[in-house]
Design a protein around this nucleic acid. Sequence first.
DNA 1: TGGTAGAGGCTTTTT
DNA 2: GCCTCTACCA
Length: 743
Amino acid sequence: MSNSTGLNERQQEAVLATEGPILVIAGAGSGKTRVLTERIAHLVGDLGIAPWEILAFTFTNKAAREMKDRLERTIPGATESMWVGTFHATGVRILRRHGEAAGVKRDFSIHDADDSAGLVKSILSRHPNDARFIKSPRVLRDIISRMKNDLIPPSLAAQRAVGAGEERVAALYAEYEKELRRQNALDFDDLIMKVVELFAASDEARETYARRFHYVLVDEFQDTNAIQMAMIDGLSSVHRNLFVVGDDDQSIYSWRGARVEHILEFEHLYPGTKVIRLEQNYRSTQTILDAANGVIEHNRGRKGKRLWTDAGAGEKVHISASADDESEALTVIEIVRREVESGTALKEIAILYRTNAQSRALEEALVSHGKIPYQLIGTVKFYERAEVRDVLAYCKAVANPADDISVKRIINVPRRGIGKTTIDQVETWAVEHGMSMTDALRDPGLGLSAAAATRCRQFLEMFDGLRRAAETEVAPHVIDAILKATDYMKYVTEAYPDAEARIENVEELLSKAHGYAEGAEDKSLRAFLEEVALVADVDNMDFDSGQLTLMTLHNAKGLEFSTVVVTGLEEGLFPHYNSIDDPAAVEEERRLFYVGMTRARQRLFLTFAGMRRRMGLMEGGVPSRFLNEIPERCLDAPVDAVYSPPRSMFPSRATSSRWTGGRPFVDEYAQPEAPEDNTDAPESGAGSSGAAYAVGTRVIHDRFGKGIVRRVEGRGEQTRVTVIFDAGGERKFLVQYAPMRPL
DNA sequence: TGGTAGAGGCTTTTT
DNA sequence: GCCTCTACCA
């Protein structure tokens, strides 16, 4: 066996077991990436398997690139014909070749999440009655996405619909699909789903791939959803050499349809599966592992494993409390400063948080401190900036003129006097006649006013010129032509006060296109767009630039750092409000915390704040239940000991907050509650004023007005009530502090 | 048609 | 607290 020295017994077993279905349960830091690459190297280098007979799925493009790089170092040239990529990228590859058998035209556009939401929005605008019952286009889009990921087509959704609401959702879903087809576009989910449909429709297509791929490997298997599983199953249906690596404890994407069950049930799905467990950790200290193990053991739905290391105990996990999010940020800076002082490189430090919104306080503190260079992953993504999206919308429309979402975005940018009225008119005509908007513009029956018609004709002339350019020119030249034809830079200069930064972004897009054209085989605009559509923010992370990294816990998956700070460990934030009532959701939050903790090699810091600005309001919080789940011997101080900041820190801040109305700092730690059995019991709790609340009590809140108590939890000082307000909305309060009384 | 100001919604996580 | 959408006026 080549290059496999230094592997432990279990790892070697995983590398060498090449035939049949294999499930590797790989704990955090157990060297799974190494096993994956060694295994491929073994297949190619020792067994003489052709690279093009191997297919490997990774979670991000970055992971794919890294795997290829590692392989290239072992076996130069091996990865050229090997398929290593995300499910989405692989789906596109298959659909460009064989999509037509599933009704997918070759020049399809890829609609990203924003495009899809825009499409849903325009559908809802045609159904004002439905729009009233659906909170936002995004919500409906997410519902549709979930159905697609669960392999539910519109017809099945309609069949299964219970009640008028679900029937309408199914109908809107059907219309959404119809619109995508009219626009010759696929959304993210389609990139996988259409492959599954293709395989179902054409055995020939399926077998073409299944015969070719003798070995199929899947990384991060715990985060695959139903369509991905169906795709994997189809692709491995001939040779059945399916090798999946995952960790049920690190499943954090159930909200995207991912199913841990795929790991838990793999052995039943694929009889004869060999299961290999990797539990030796090569990353963290024993103390960090003990802390993480202690937390994750509170979950029920897991296969169960216990990570160990021979790296030694190391330092205790550090816990610190701050009065509010601003001082938490200062604490973080202080931690970073000391780490750097003691010789840790900035690029070896990561600050993690549950929600992107938390990055603001941290970033502001870093900016005013001014001496710590940092990179922020994931907030305003490059490809989501308005100016970048504008230029890309031109590209997409030029590559696929049926792409109405893109056409609508650019038809009046820069301003050319084609306003809302005209656009609506064109769109209505297009939808009614089943044609694209650009075709509708050419339709003599459209009947625009003379002035509007002239402007539209001018637009079309320019647009057609760009189309001709796209047929022959490489991507960067087409973008150049777009910028010139529209005088886009001049528009940006005039339209935005921060034009300079925006121009830089456009220039960066252009240079990305140049870079792409230099390396890629297919230099066409369409190919470039494909590349761009599938990159995630994580793909652009740079860990060699000597900067501190700030990102969400989700983004930290698969990474490791010498020092990790997990911030915002408060009930309601982590675990998040939206999860707190659902035990399964809390377990996922716990897994997310587990993922965060196990990113750390040497030192782990956990911080929380007594008050936090949330959507503009100050809200108080108690330490996360997760902190109490860490064995005390692993901590440098007991949670409740750090959680008693001097009261004097508070009044001035608290009284200035609109939300708390000067409520005092909660200074005792609230124990996580026993499973609640009093959900609807009319149990009363005593408020600070001695007022009693029961389910159904009418109340008045100083800020939110009148409402009715829906739920009472806890007792004594910890009594919390959930109130539905007449004005709409539902909120949970600690009775003791809420400016509220019974009516 | 385009500009502006005020209201309202939003924030859980993303390929 | 910020961003986006809408309504209204020029």
